[in-house]
């Protein structure tokens, strides 16, 4: 196990959790919606934020310290791997719990505040005179994924006979580092993953904003959603490319440089994702009446709304999208995604 890489991953995950208060629109604090960003200047709200920061970074530091202690005292690889996995799971679990506690505190704070007239639980204003053409990314965009997808399937099917008995399934910075016995499930895992990605893009195209109430509650959201859908399409395209190179690699060696370029492009897209989010979502100031739908966001994290036909919705905290847990079809999609990812990991 590489200490730098694994500790780097640990710190990255921890920072994402600690930074949660900054990964939402400015009138949202720990998943609780307010009429405007005045809440950021509220003294009690600031105390809740400070307490969360202290607790979240304290716990992360403690777990990291434990991890490092084991790393320097033990030499047993398998033992160290299980310790590391355990601390990562503990990190995710504890930080989520701390977030939920902060969410509860914010809910209580909101109850003590004067009811804001800008916040209403039963008023909703939407823009009518626009066709789907203008608001939803056309489904035809998905077709640009088709050529590489078909190429991957073709190479897999036609080249299966010529593939070696052991197939590389995992690629590190220095080339393949894990192999699995050849089988149809192993070679077709990339194809399944691509289909899963397509499904997600299909639903993100229509995902509503996490803050609603009127068209200016999340200004420019329609454009932002289109950009995010295109960005996801970019991710899918790069992922396809990696898979295509991977299956070609089963047959004949190709320069590591190609994969590195695709990997770098991927990192570029992740940076773009952050920039888009800050510029077009977080820094956009919402105005007008805001819908108070806190009861639909369990712990500020999980969306559960029976009357909303949306299957995916923009996350209230964090970049990206989440499912509407009141929709059975959303569960089926989530389950399928989990099964595909577990299958992919299993094959490795």
């Amino acid at each position: 196990m590489n200490v730098i890489v694994s500790m780097g991953t640990f710190i990255f995950i921890a920072v994402l959790f600690i930074a949660q208060p900054w990964f939402s629109r400015k009138n949202v604090l720990f998943g609780v919606v307010f009429a405007d960003d005045a809440v950021t200047r509220n003294k009690s709200a600031w105390l809740i934020k400070r307490r969360y920061l202290a607790e979240a970074s304290g716990c992360a530091a403690l777990l990291l310290f434990t991890d490092l202690l084991f790393f320097f005292m033990m030499k047993n690889e398998t033992f160290l791997t299980s310790v590391y996995t355990f601390t990562i799971v503990a990190l995710v679990f504890i930080e989520t719990l701390l977030f939920i506690l902060a969410n509860r505190r914010t809910v209580r704070l909101k109850k003590t505040m004067q009811p804001d007239p800008g916040l209403s639980a039963n008023k909703m204003i939407v823009e009518l005179g626009k066709s789907d053409h203008e608001t939803v990314l056309s489904v035809y965009w998905l077709f640009i994924l088709l050529p590489i997808f078909l190429a991957t399937v073709a190479v897999t099917v036609l080249g299966y006979r010529y593939m070696p008995d052991m197939i590389p399934t995992h690629f590190g910075i220095y080339g393949p580092d894990r192999w699995a016995p050849k089988s149809w499930t192993v070679v077709f895992t990339p194809v399944l993953l691509e289909l899963a990605l397509c499904t997600v893009i299909l639903f993100i195209r229509r995902a509503p904003a996490s803050v609603k109430g009127n068209p200016n509650a999340a200004p420019g959201y329609v454009r932002y959603r289109k950009m995010m859908s295109l960005l996801m399409l970019g991710f899918a395209l790069l992922t396809e490319l990696i898979f295509l190179l991977t299956v070609i690699r089963f047959l004949t060696p190709i320069p590591q440089l190609w994969l590195t370029i695709v990997l770098l492009a991927n990192i570029g897209l992740i940076i773009a994702l952050f920039i888009f989010y800050v510029r077009f979502a977080r820094n956009r100031k919402g105005t007008g009446p805001i819908l108070d739908d806190d009861t639909k966001w369990i712990f500020g994290l999980f969306y559960f709304n029976r009357s909303d036909p949306s299957i995916f919705i923009e996350k209230r905290v964090g970049i990206g999208y989440t499912i509407n847990m009141a929709r059975p079809s959303a569960w089926i999609i989530l389950l399928a995604l989990i099964v595909i990812s577990i299958a992919a990991v299993w094959n490795h």
Partner: peptide
């Protein structure tokens, strides 16, 4: 579908 998801109604 679009209007339903925007308003948040069936």
């Amino acid at each position: 579908r679009t209007l339903g998801t925007e308003i948040g109604v069936n």
